[in-house]
Every structure is written in structure tokens, then in C-alpha cells.
């Protein structure tokens, strides 16, 4: 098993790599390498036990403060990783609003109309198309 200090060193290495790409840290996801020790032992062996079990890694990006963040965390992250937002390109407010409405009306998310607007504000703030949102540019996304 790899000592945790080594993972820490690798995480620092990751930060260095990001810096070498010429991207300012604020423009990138604040991801961290996370060691999953239980996973390590399962990767290269498959037990003969009739019970087959895996342990999923838990590693989700932290999201910055902003108007609507509480609503976003409560209503969206209960069902899926916030990475569903960060993997998307920057979309217009209209597209983000239609996505939120789809989650509410089609997929069954528990969101009031008022919350839907606040969540949309937040999505535009973190990953909206430049010039269409309230926030600066998208913090995440492309």
C-alpha cells in the first residue's frame, strides 16, 4: 500500500502540472487526487467468494460560493455528482433553465419554481456562456 504522504506529493505534482499548462488555478476545477485504499486490493484480484463487492470512489468537485448554491446542492447533488454540470460546455441561460425544468418535470426532481430559477442563476454563474449570465465568465467548463 502506498503511504498517504506519497499521494499528497502526487497531488502537489498535479497542481504543478496544472500550473504548467498556463491556466490560472481559479479557472480550473479544484480537483484533488484521492487514494482509495480499499479499491487498490480489488483491482488486480477477483475473489472466489460468491459475494462480489466493489467500493466506489467518492471524489466530487467542490463548488464555489454563489447565489443559488444552497438550492443547487440540496436539489441536484442528492441525485447526481456536480460533475454533471462541469462536464457540460458553457450553455446559455435558456439552455440551463430548460435543463433544470427537465430535471423537475421529466426526471422528478423535487424543485419549486422559485428554486428552479435560483438553481439556474447558479448554473449560469458557474458554467454559463459569456455575456448571458449574471456572473463573470463560467468558472468551470471549457
Amino acid at each position: 500500500m502506498i503511504p498517504k504522504t506519497k499521494s499528497l506529493v502526487l497531488s502537489l505534482g498535479l497542481a504543478a502540472l496544472l500550473a504548467s499548462c498556463g491556466l490560472s488555478p481559479s479557472s480550473k476545477e479544484q480537483d484533488h487526487g484521492i487514494a482509495n485504499e480499499k479499491m487498490e486490493s480489488m483491482l488486480h484480484s477477483r475473489s472466489d467468494s460468491p459475494v462480489h463487492t466493489i467500493v466506489m470512489p467518492h471524489d466530487e468537485p467542490a463548488f464555489p460560493p454563489g447565489s443559488g448554491r444552497d438550492e443547487f446542492v440540496t436539489a441536484c447533488v442528492v441525485c447526481h455528482s456536480p460533475r454533471y454540470i462541469t462536464m457540460q460546455p458553457r450553455f446559455s441561460r435558456a439552455t440551463w433553465l430548460s435543463e433544470v425544468k427537465k430535471m423537475k418535470d421529466v426526471y422528478g426532481a423535487h424543485i419549486s419554481d422559485d428554486q428552479a430559477l435560483k438553481i439556474t442563476d447558479y448554473l449560469v454563474f458557474i458554467n454559463g456562456k459569456a455575456g448571458t449570465g449574471q456572473g463573470p465568465k463560467g468558472i468551470y467548463g471549457e
Binding site: 499521494s7 498535479l14 480550473k28
Partner: peptide, 14 residues
Amino acid sequence: LMGATSVVALTASC
């Protein structure tokens, strides 16, 4: 190296 140490590696492409 990241793979060898089985870290969940999240790296950014340039």
C-alpha cells in the same frame, strides 16, 4: 505513476 499508485487521478489536459 498516478496509475501505478492507484490514485484516482484527475488531471487536466492542456
